[in-house]
Write a protein that binds this DNA or RNA. Structure first.
Lengths: 201, 201, 201, 201
DNA sequence: TATGAATGAGTTTTCATTCAT
DNA sequence: GATGAATGAAAACTCATTCAT
C-alpha cells in the first residue's frame, strides 16, 4: 500500500519528533503513533519494542548528523575556520533537534538502564570525531600539551549536551544564544592559545 | 514519636533519592513510596501531586546546596582559592546526587511542560550566585571584559549539567573525573587570565 | 467502603468461577473483573499478577475441598463406606467445579511453565490424603501388596483429572456419570480384593 | 522444489509441535509460524483460522496414531498380548506427544467452546476402537458382564488423558512411569478376571 | 502460492489520583 | 495525620485476522 520502507522511515521520524518535542518520558508508543498518524502496533511490528525504536531514532539522527559534521569539518584547516564551521553545524543541530534527542536519550538512560550502554556506544563516534578534528586543526600547541585533545573533546561534548538541556528550559533561547555568540568571540583568543607556532615567543 | 513534619521530610528525601537513582521517568509515586517505606497516598496528602513533590524535592536539595555554596564560596578571595573551593563543592554535589536531580528535573521538564518554568526559576539563584562570585573574585580583568561574568556563569552551569548527564551514562566516572582533574590543572592558566591586575605582577 | 477483605474474596471467587466456566486460556484479568463486577486493576492491587491470582484461587478451592475430604473420609472405615463417601465427595467436586479448576491449572501450566512447580506442589496434599486413606482403609491386603497404595493414590488422582477433562467436552455428563456409576458397582468386587482378611481362603 | 502440499504439512507439523511443547494457551499463529519458520499469514491462507488449524493438527495426529493402533491391536488376541501391545503404543504416544496434544485440545475446548463439539467428535474413534478391541479380546467374561466394554473403554481413555496431564506437571515422569509399570504388572490379574472361559482352566 | 504490511481489539500491568475512614 | 481501597486512563506489547500484491 505504501512504498517499501517508507513506513519504517515514518515511524523513525515520528519517534525522533516525539523525543524532541515531548521528551523521553513522554515518548510512548501511543504518542509516537499519534504523532506519525499510524497504528500503534506498527511500532512493534517494525521495531519490536520501544527501546529498540528509540535507539533506532538515535541512530538515525546520529548517522545524518555525523555525515554532515564529517563533510563540513573536513574543510576546516585553521582554528577560525573550525569555529565558523562548528558554529554553523551547531545551528543546524539546534534547528533539527538532534542534540535534544541525544540529551533526552542520555537523561532517560537512568530510568531505563538497559539503554545506557547502547546510548553510550552511540556517543563514541562523536568523541572520536571531535578528538580527531581537534588534533588535526590544533596539532601540537602549548595548550594541547597540558590539555589533551581527548579531554578537550570530552569537554566540548559535555558542554554541548548541557547547553541543550538548558536551552529547553527557557522558552526562548536568548541566554544560550548569547553564550554561543560569546564563545565565537573567543575565537581570536583560542587562535592564539592553540596556534601551532604558539610555543616559542 | 516523630517530629511534627518528619513525614514531609521523609517524603522529600525519598523523592530525591528516587530521582537520583532511578531518574525522572521512573520517579513515580509508587517508586517514591516504596523507597521511603510509606503509604503511596501520603505523597498526595502532603504535596497534592507528583509535580509538586518533585519540585519540592528540587527546592529541598537546592536550599541545602545553595547554603553550602554560599558559605564555602564566601571564603574564596583568589582564583586559586575559588578553584579549590569549587572542586570540593563539586565533589560534594556528585556524592549527594544533587546535580543528578537537577539535570533529571531539567530533562523531565520537556515531558511535563508545566515543570519547565518552575524548574527554570529554581536555576536562577545558581546563576546569580555563580555570577556574583565570579565578579567578586575576578573583578575587572581583561578576560571578563570580553567574556562577561553573566555569560561565564551560564557557561559553567551548562558545563556542569552536561558533565552530570554524561557521568551517568558510563558505569564508572573515569572520563568525567579526568576532565575535572584537567580543569583543576588549568587553574594557573586561569589565574593568569583572570588576575585583577591583568598580567604583570 | 466494603468489609475488610470481602473484595479479596470476591476476586478469588470470580477467578475461580472464570477458571471453571471459561477455562485457563480465557481466564484473563478482564474476564475475571467482568465476572466479579469490579475494576480490572483490583486484581493487581490485591494479587500483583494473574499468575498469583490463579494460584490463589487454586489454593482457595484446594483448602475448602481438602477440609471437606478430610472430615468426610475420617469417618470411612470399610471399603464400602469409602466408596460411598468418595462418591459423595466427587459429586460435590463436580458441582463446585473444583476439579475443573485443578485440571485447567494443570493444563495451563504447560503454557505458563512458571505455574508448573506451584501447581504440582498444590497436588501433593491430595496424593498424601489419598494414600493415607487407602492405607487406613485397605491396610495390608493381597492387592495392596502388588499394587502399593502410593501408586494406587496416584492412579486415582490421575483418573479423576482425566474424567474431569472429558466431562467438559460433552455437553451433558452422561458418559462420565455412567462410568462413575459403574465404578460404584465395582464396590463388592473391590471389597473382596482389598479386604484385609482377603488373603487366606 | 517442494511437494505440492508440503507447506500444508509443514504448518500442521508446526501446529502440532507448538501444541505439544507450549500448550493450547500459547499456541498462537505467531508461535506456530515461528516454530515452522514460515509466514504467519500462511496459517490463514491454508486453514482460515487458528481454530481450524488446531483441529486439523488434531486430525493429523489422530489419523496417524489411529492407524498405528489399528494395525498393532489387530494382532493382539489375548489379554497379555493386548497389554504388551498397548504398553508399546503408549510409549510411542508419549514420545510423539500425541496425547499431550489431545489433552491440550480438550482442556482448551473450555476456553473456546466452538472447539468442544469438534474435539469431542475426534475422540469418538478412539472410544470405538478401544471398545471393539476390548470386546474382541475379552469377549464375554464375568467382569465384562458387570463392567461393559463401553464403560471400560471410556475409563481407559479417561485415565490415559489424566496421566498425560499430570506427566507434564512433573519435570521427570518418574511417578507416571511407575504407575504404568504397576499397571503392566496387573496383567496376570487382569488375565484371570477377563479370561473368556471365566475362571477355571 | 505466498507474503509483508497493516490493524482493532486484546493482553498484563502501572499510573496518578481520590476518597472514606 | 494517615491509610487501605479503589479507579479510569494509559503503559508496552500481542492477538487473530485481512488484504494488496
Amino acid at each position: 500500500m505504501q512504498a517499501p520502507d517508507s513506513t519504517r522511515q515514518q515511524i523513525l521520524q515520528a519517534a525522533f519528533d516525539t523525543l524532541r518535542d515531548r521528551g523521553f518520558a513522554a515518548a510512548t508508543s501511543r504518542a509516537v503513533a499519534e504523532r506519525g498518524g499510524f497504528n500503534q502496533a506498527l511500532v512493534f511490528y517494525y521495531f519490536g519494542s520501544m527501546d529498540t525504536l528509540l535507539l533506532a531514532a538515535l541512530d538515525w539522527t546520529n548517522e545524518q548528523r555525523l555525515a554532515a559534521y564529517r563533510t563540513a569539518l573536513a574543510g576546516a584547516q585553521t582554528v577560525d575556520e573550525l569555529f565558523a564551521t562548528a558554529a554553523h553545524l551547531f545551528e543546524e543541530d539546534r534547528d533539527s533537534g538532534h542534540v535534544t534527542v541525544v540529551s533526552q536519550m542520555i537523561a532517560g538512560s537512568i530510568a531505563r538502564p538497559e539503554l545506557a550502554p547502547e546510548t553510550l556506544e552511540r556517543m563514541e563516534p562523536w568523541l572520536e570525531l571531535c578528538e580527531q578534528t581537534l588534533e588535526r586543526v590544533l596539532g601540537k600547541s602549548p595548550l594541547t600539551q597540558m590539555f589533551p585533545t581527548r579531554d578537550l573533546a570530552y569537554g566540548i561534548v559535555t558542554f554541548y549536551l548541557g547547553a541543550n538541556l538548558l536551552t529547553h528550559l527557557e522558552g526562548d533561547r536568548a541566554r544560550a544564544e548569547a553564550l554561543l555568540a560569546r564563545l565565537r568571540e573567543l575565537e581570536p583568543l583560542a587562535s592564539g592559545l592553540f596556534s601551532r607556532s604558539g610555543g616559542a615567543p
